[in-house]
């Protein structure tokens, strides 16, 4: 009997726990995954943006030549190709950033990144209050409206996600 009571109490608790987000949405915040989630973005291998992939390829080409796997001809050719790819990726990001700035100035409806403080994706929050670029690495800081908080790419209008790295953007 006691067991049945315990079971019923437990069941009630479980049902309350499961249905609470529906009846009291305010309690649980906006989107799923806000509370207590870890960010595993620290592992550099996990960054799969075109820029990071091209940079890693450059490293690898260098290493493969050093260990004698890549001939000098292939090395030169691949190095040229991937340097070009990396520069292109950088240029896209910077170019987007430039045009994005104009966009942001022209329109107030542009999406705003959800991180309040100016923060560099690699070096964290910056001490300078109105900084736009990181003083350590020169990356665009995430806080600027219209730019992705994670990778600094300029965001499209009304974007919910960064088209480059997939990070979510605040509404």
């Amino acid at each position: 009997m006691l067991e049945l009571v315990a079971g019923v109490l437990f069941a009630t608790g479980v049902v309350w726990f499961v249905l609470r987000p529906i009846f009291r949405p305010a309690l649980t915040g906006g989107a799923i995954g806000d509370a207590g989630d870890v960010d595993d973005g620290e592992d550099p291998e996990d960054d799969l943006s075109p820029r990071a992939v091209a940079l890693r390829a450059l490293k690898e080409i260098e290493f493969d030549r050093a260990t004698g796997k890549l001939s000098d001809t292939d090395y030169d050719e691949l190095k040229g190709k991937y340097t070009a790819a990396a520069v292109a990726a950088l240029r896209t990001e910077m170019g987007n950033a430039g045009s994005g700035m104009r966009d942001a100035a022209a329109s107030q409806t542009h999406p705003v990144s959800r991180i309040p403080q100016p923060a560099c994706p690699m070096h964290g929050p910056r001490p300078e209050p109105a900084a736009v670029f990181c003083s350590e690495c020169g990356r665009r800081l995430g806080a600027a409206p219209g730019y992705c908080a994670r990778c600094g790419t300029v965001l499209e209008r009304e974007a919910k996600y960064c088209h480059s790295c997939g990070a979510r953007v605040a509404a």
């Binding site: 550099p44 940079l55 340097t83 990396a86 520069v87 690699m122 690495c137 020169g138």
Partner: peptide
């Protein structure tokens, strides 16, 4: 400038 930036980015990668 772009190459300089590329250099910095490569610095960030662990080898």
């Amino acid at each position: 400038e772009e190459l300089e930036r590329l250099r910095r980015e490569l610095d960030q990668l662990s080898s």
